[in-house]
Design a protein around this nucleic acid. Structure first.
Lengths: 73, 73
DNA sequence: AAATTCCACGAAGTTAAACTTCAAGTTCTT
DNA sequence: AAGAACTTGAAGTTTAACTTCGTGGAATTT
């Protein structure tokens, strides 16, 4: 039972890799620092509502996909 | 096409009403001001990641439910 | 009709979460 | 081995998240 941030981060990483993007590339599209992406993926930081929106757009997924944890342990 | 904030707000309101809570009651549970709930429901403000989590918990829904807009008018 | 409840709305402010930079180190891939 | 991708910590800045206060409106309820 990891935190929501952690789950969210894992999901973000999964989706990013599926799209074959590096943290740096995603960071540039979304206009945040690569370290911030790294921190979000590791559950250390969380995105703002606006950044959440941009992430979804950049990765071409619905926002709810970031919060869909049905396949989880 | 309304903004994500607006859609989110509408959904929040729907779910809150389904639970038969006033803005004030929800605000108290989630530990924010009632005006803030009002603003979020009207798409003026957006919650932080933490507040999002608390909203889901208070209303006993999954976070993705806030972002599920399939049945939209 | 007046009192109560619930909510809208604006203005103006504060706070904390979101986000940055830099620098050094690690792991992965080729 | 070398480069690319990522981690991590520390210490800082910025801005979105959130507050308070005051007024007012619409819909009950007494």
């Amino acid at each position: 039972m990891s935190s929501l941030r952690a789950k969210f981060g894992k999901q973000l990483r999964r989706i990013r890799k599926r799209r074959d993007l590096t943290q740096e590339q995603l960071a540039e599209i979304v206009d945040v620092s690569p370290e911030f992406i790294s921190n979000v993926e590791r559950g250390i930081n969380a995105p703002s509502f606006e950044t959440l929106e941009k992430l979804a757009e950049a990765l071409r997924v619905a926002i709810k996909d970031f919060f869909d944890y049905d396949h989880e342990t």
